[in-house]
Each structure stands twice: as C-alpha cells, then as structure tokens.
C-alpha cells in the first residue's frame, strides 16, 4: 500500500468519497474566502469541530454495531454540569488547581455510566436502541435540569477556563485532544479484537452470536465509549465557555449523526470507519467556517448541509449495487 501513485489515490478517494468532497470545498474556500487559507484558521476549524467530532467517533462505533445513540447531547450537558460544579465542592476547596482533576474524573464517569445504562437496557430488554436512547435523551436532559436547578454553573477556577486557550506545540490543546481521540478510536476499531467484533456484531449479528461473541456486553462497552466521549466533549466545551448551561448540546445528536453518515457509515450496521467519520466532521467544519468567512449567513449552511446529506444518500444508493436483483419492487 505504500506505493502511492495516481491510481491508488483515486481508488482511495472512490472508497472514501467524503475526502474528495473535503478536498473540493477546501480548494473552493481557499480560492474564494480571503482568510480561509491560513494556519490560524485551520487551527480554528479543528477546535470548532472538536466538540461534535469527538462524539462522532463514538457514534461511529455504535452505528457500526447497528445501534444509534440520540442521548449524546444530554450526556454532554450533564458531564459539563458535573465538571464545572464539582470543582467548587467544599471537599476540594483546599486542592487548588488540583480540584479540576476529581471534577473531570467524575464528569467522565457520569458519561460512562449514562452509556452503560443505555447499553444495559438495550441488551436486557431487546428494545431498539433508537427508542431507548430517545427516552434517555429526554431523561438525561431531565437529570441535567434536576442537578442544575435550571441555572448555569460558572467555573470559578480560572485554570479551568484558561485550559482551552493553551497550545501544545503548534496546535491548540483542544485540537490535540481531538486528533488524539481520532487516532485512538481508529486504532481501536481497526486493530483490536473489540473493534473487529464491532463490525461482526453489526454486519451479521447471528453469525457473531454463533461465533461466541457476547453481543450484550460488547454493545454495552460501545455505549460506554460513546458516553465517555460525549462527556469528554462536554468537559472541553465547558472549558471553552468557562461555564455549563442546562441547554448545552441540544440538537448535537443530529449534527453528529449527520457527520457520521456523511462519512459513509451505514445505519444498518456493519459498515463505516473512523477515516470516513473524520472526513464527515471536517466537511461540516470547513463548510461552516468557510461560509462564515464569506459572510454567508449561518442559515444557508443548514440548507446546504442537509441537502448534501440527502445527496450522499442518493449517490450511495445509485452507485452501490442494490440487493433486490433487479426486481421492480
């Protein structure tokens, strides 16, 4: 695979059409938006997309499994609320900047727990993940309101709200964390037994069961991973805002699913990868950023991204052979 000639690049793009699209809009905005082709702007794009991008990584796993998670926006808000609130708990009052550590740990654990609850219900009841997580979307949002009492929390520790302004070498720390997550999840999905089993469970569940893969615990693990990533995303978002609001992350599930589907992951399971999802996330990020720079109102971005989503679906149907054997059904 190391020999990169024209043909193999083309073939790679054929398999990952979203990257062709990313390339296209990248060139387009470089030529037409004044401040687009700028290193600082690239950093911006990465930081802006990191919130949705990190969750999209988890959504890829869950969707390859043949499930879906609509509760990620609410989980994000709950984790953000914990991350900001726990810092000011009396127990950690004397910890100085170290009070951030238990806060973040608790926030991430809460995310993992929410994922585990979803996964456990999906496993034991056999109710479709769409319904389970639709319920959880409402319920976890309810927990956020119960916990926050409808008010916003503000970070009192400035080290916390300054965190997002830090840079690690040439990149902002948020971008570094995002890219790190991309690499780890990619590695998980493509190199580990759990990752390969993710394809097996989504691609042919019966075969996976017969081969002795414990489908239930396997799915719980993936729901825990997406819970963790949603919580991480919530923590990072709250460092950017220096606060956590109860309505944080509303509609994020829709954006995340859009990015993942753009990246070529199938709702029916068994198909998709992180490279595609990363492309889908970047496509949305570049569109938003580029159009913003061109002073196009945000409304048009909504229309265009929705239209692209449908177009991707249409093209996919057109070019991927259908399995009805030419019957006019």
């Amino acid at each position: 695979m190391s020999r990169l000639n024209d043909i193999s690049v083309l073939r790679w793009l054929m398999r990952n059409p979203i990257w062709g699209f990313v390339l296209l809009i990248f060139v387009f905005f470089s030529l037409s938006a004044d401040n687009f082709f700028d290193y600082r702007n690239f950093q911006n794009i990465l930081v802006q997309t990191s919130t949705i991008g990190i969750i999209a990584l988890g959504m890829t796993l869950v969707m390859i499994n043949g499930n879906i998670d609509l509760s990620v926006g609410a989980t994000l808000a709950l984790a953000a609320a914990f991350a900001v609130d726990v810092q000011s708990w009396a127990a950690f009052a004397t910890w100085g900047n170290w009070q951030i550590l238990p806060a973040v740990c608790i926030a991430l654990l809460v995310g993992i727990l929410m994922g585990a609850i979803n996964g456990f219900i999906v496993w034991k009841t056999g109710v479709d993940a769409f319904i389970v997580t639709l319920g959880a979307m409402l319920g976890i949002r309810g927990l956020v309101f119960v916990y926050t009492g409808e008010s916003s929390f503000f970070a009192t520790n400035f080290a916390y709200s300054d965190f997002s302004a830090l840079s690690l070498g040439p990149l902002p720390v948020l971008a570094v964390i995002f890219l790190l997550c991309v690499m780890v999840v990619h590695w998980l999905l493509s190199r580990t037994v759990h990752g390969r089993n993710t394809y097996a469970v989504g691609g042919n569940r019966e075969a996976a069961v017969n081969a002795g893969i414990r489908v239930g615990p396997h799915m719980i693990l993936n729901f825990m991973i997406i819970g963790f990533l949603a919580a991480l995303s919530g923590v990072l978002l709250s460092t950017q805002m220096g606060a956590a609001t109860p309505n944080l992350g509303r509609d994020y599930e829709l954006w995340v699913i859009t990015a993942v589907v753009l990246g070529g992951t199938k709702l029916t399971g068994g198909k998709g990868d992180i490279i595609g999802t990363f492309g889908g996330v970047l496509a949305i990020g570049i569109m938003r950023n580029g159009m913003n720079l061109m002073q196009v109102p945000a409304f048009y971005v909504l229309v265009i991204i929705g239209a692209i989503l449908i177009a991707v679906l249409f093209l996919d149907k057109r070019f991927n052979t259908s399995n009805d054997g030419g019957l006019r059904l």
Binding site: R191, T192, V193, H194, N197, A200, A207, A208, A211, I213
Partner: peptide, 12 residues
C-alpha cells in the same frame, strides 16, 4: 470469528 488471535492491549 470470535476467536481472533490476540496480542497485548487486545490487538489482533
């Protein structure tokens, strides 16, 4: 399937 040979860290 179900019996993939494993290395450290759950790698295939």
């Amino acid at each position: 399937l179900g019996e993939l040979p494993v290395k450290s860290f759950g790698r295939v």
